[in-house]
Design a protein around this nucleic acid. Sequence first.
DNA 1: GTCTATAGCGGGATAGAC
DNA 2: GTCTATCCCGCTATAGAC
Lengths: 194, 194
Amino acid sequence: MNAPDTRTAILDLAEELVRSRSFNAFSYQDLADGIGIRKASVHYHFQTKEDLGVALVERLRRQAVAWASSLMERNVSPLEKLDAYFEFQAESVSSKGMICPHGALGAEYNALPERVQESYIEFLEQIQTWLTSLLRKGQAQGVFVDNVPPEDQAALIQSAIQGALQLSRASGKQQRFYAVVKGLRDHVLRPAES
Amino acid sequence: MNAPDTRTAILDLAEELVRSRSFNAFSYQDLADGIGIRKASVHYHFQTKEDLGVALVERLRRQAVAWASSLMERNVSPLEKLDAYFEFQAESVSSKGMICPHGALGAEYNALPERVQESYIEFLEQIQTWLTSLLRKGQAQGVFVDNVPPEDQAALIQSAIQGALQLSRASGKQQRFYAVVKGLRDHVLRPAES
DNA sequence: GTCTATAGCGGGATAGAC
DNA sequence: GTCTATCCCGCTATAGAC
C-alpha cells in the first residue's frame, strides 16, 4: 500500500490531508514532512497547488468510476450494491477523522482554485449519475420505492452521506452515521406488502 | 441591517465569509477591506482569529436558540415548524453561494482552532436537540412516522440539509436542494392511511 | 529526481500615536 | 476606536547545484 513512487505517495497523503483538514489547510511543507522529502521535490511533481488539486480530484474520479464499474459487474441485487456503497463510505467514519472527498471539497468550493472546481464538478456529477442509474434499476426491479424520481433519491443519499460524515466526526458519535444510513435504507426500500 | 456598530459589522461579514469561503480561507484583511477600516482595528475588537471564531459561533448558537424558541411558541403544527426550518435553510440556497454555518465549519473541523471546535460542538448539539424534540412531538401527535427514534430522524435531516446545500451550490442546481427537502418531508411524514 | 537557498507575498498579531 | 508602522512567520513558487 505504501508509496510505489513519490508521485503516488504525494497524492495519497494529499488525499488524506484534504479529507481530514481541507484543501486550503494543508501545505507543501506538510506533504514534504510526511513523505520525508523537501518542499521543492513536491513542486517537481506538481508545480502548483492547483495542479496538485486537479490531479487529486481526477484520480478520485477515476477511482470512483473503476469502483462503481467493478461493482456493477457483480451479479448482486441493487440493494446489495447500495449497501456496498454505504459500507464504502462507512470506512471513512472509523479512519483518522476523515470525511468523504466530495464533502471536504464541497464545503470550501468557493475557495478552491478554478480548475479544481471544474474537476470537482465532474467528479460530483459522475457519482450522481451512477447512484441515479443504480436506483433506477432498483425501482425497475420493484425493490426500491418508485414514486420518486431516482435523481431525487440519489441527491438525498449523497447529501445525507456527506453531511453525516461531517456531523459524526465533529460530534464524535459514530452511531449518528449509521443511524443516517439506516434511515436512507428505509427511505428507498419498498416496504414489504402487508 | 447594515452595521449598527463595528463589532457587529465584523461578525456579520465574518459569517458571510465563513459560509461562502470557509473559516481558514478568509483573512483579517478581507474583513478590513469589506468594512472600510484597517486590519489593526479588527484586531481591536477580536484580538485573535480564534477569538473571532468563538464569538461568531456563540452568536450563531444564540441566534439559533432564539429562532427556535420563538418558533416553538407559535401555535402551529410540528409539520409547519419543520417546514419553517426547511424554509430557513433554503434561504442559503439563493444567497451569494453561501452554505449553512454548521456545514461550512463541519467540513474543516480538524483545521479549526481548539476553542472554535468546542463552541461548534455545542452549536451542533443544540440544533440536534431542538430538531429531536420537534420530531418527537410530531410522532406523539401522529403526524410523523414513529417506527424510528426521533434522534435518528434528526440526524438524517440535519445531515441531508447540510450536504444538500453544499451539493447544490457546487453543481449550480438549486432544485437538488428542494428535491432533498421533499424527500426528507416524505420520510418523516406519516403516509395517509388507506 | 532531489537537494539548498531564496524570492516574494500575505497571513496573524503587536506597539504606540492620535 | 482607529490609525500607521512593523514584526515574524509560513505559504507558494523558482533557480540552480548535484
